Simulated assay, not measured.
Amino acid sequence: MKTIKQFLEELLRDIGVNISIDKNDIDVAKIFLNRINQYLYQSNNNEYISPFHEYWKEKHQEILNISINRNQARKIAEIFEQIFSSPSSFPQLELNTKITNTKGLSKENIANVRFYTAIQDFKINIYKDGRNPFQKYLEKPEWFEPEKIVESPNIILEFLEYLGATGSQGDKRIKWMLEASKFLLETCNGQAYNLLEICNNDLELVRKLISDERDIGFSRKKADMFIRDMLDWNIWDTDIGIEKLNVASDTNTIRVALRTGLLELDFPLLASYLDVYCYQYGLVDYKTQEGWRTVWEEWKKIPNNHCPKTPASMDYLIYKSIGKKYCKLNKRKCEECVLNQVCPPDKRNLKPPRSISIYGQTGWESGKTDAGGGGGIMS
């Protein structure tokens, strides 16, 4: 067992102060725990949980010091070029999402199904347990018809129960579905397929329309994913703004970026308990998208390359075929992974951050206390 006194003496040595603490361990523990509780959890104002969180907002970028390693980006790009130039040589890898069995579905049908499922596509797998929302359209078309949803909002709950999406932020999901339906009726005659035409075939404008300042369930990441699928499935045909689409940053794409050394850190990321305003998470999210875009930029420099027109077309390979299949959180299959040769040995255990935001569902607002002590989260 390491005592608090021993911990503090080690900490002092790490920062260049070589002294021994002239107090017994219990007295040291009392002082230390009282002061750390004050700094981390006692609020001095109404805006932040504690002085630490105010400091973390101002200094997290300097402390984390996350950078993108272009040399690693080039190495990854060279491997991706091998894969995309000869996909048959890598039968274990899937390069993009596929719809199986589209019989009986029009492009308009497919676009609406993907529009509504993309809203829900976080923290759940819409295809889990053999679900096929696209074929479900033939049985339950009203789930994907905005006018029917607005007329009978109880339809939304049926749809969410089918997807297994009622548990995680269920109230928000219901609101998003209803608002998204109103949006489709107001802007494009109820058809998500028409979004491209009303945005003059500009994909960046489509992303802006569905994600910026609208509460219909689309972040920019979900918008990029929806647009990517519309292109990969040949539902839409345009190149305008295609280069603006990013690899969607998630647990898997972040983990691969960290372990390959594409993102460089001075130390492993903090636990979410210290990042309750998601400053670390937001920074890593942004840097991950920027990092994979750097891979795409390096890839385009390779002579006679097979680089896709958009970074978003790398997403499925990174997220599904590498991240979920080989670069798992607690069970890595490095020897079988196509990126094995580029991953530095000292980075293979790095883990992505978690989002546990004060603004989210976890109730961190109650985590703070005041000079009276006590307080904190309870079950």
Rank of each mutant, 00 (worst) to 15 (best):
I76W: 00
I76K: 00
A77P: 15
A77F: 10
A77Q: 10
A77R: 08
E78K: 12
I79G: 01
F80S: 13
F80P: 14
E81V: 02
E81K: 04
Q82A: 02
Q82V: 01
I83G: 10
F84E: 15
S85W: 07
S85C: 04
S86K: 14
S86F: 04
P87G: 10
P87H: 13
S88N: 11
S88E: 13
S88M: 12
S88A: 12
S88D: 14
S89P: 01
F90I: 15
F90C: 14
P91V: 15
L93G: 11
L93E: 05
L93R: 07
L93S: 06
E94F: 08
E94H: 11
E94P: 08
E94Y: 08
L95S: 09
L95H: 11
N96D: 09
N96Q: 11
T97P: 07
T97M: 05
T97N: 05
T97Y: 06
K98S: 13
K98N: 09
K98Q: 14
I99F: 06
I99P: 01
I99S: 01
T100G: 05
T100Y: 03
T100S: 05
T100H: 03
T100L: 08
N101E: 08
N101P: 04
T102Q: 03
T102Y: 02
T102W: 04
T102D: 05
T102L: 10
K103I: 14
K103P: 08
K103A: 13
L105H: 00
L105Q: 00
L105W: 02
L105A: 03
K107H: 04
K107V: 12
K107S: 10
E108T: 04
E108W: 02
N109C: 06
N109A: 10
N109P: 00
I110V: 12
I110S: 00
I110R: 00
A111L: 07
A111D: 00
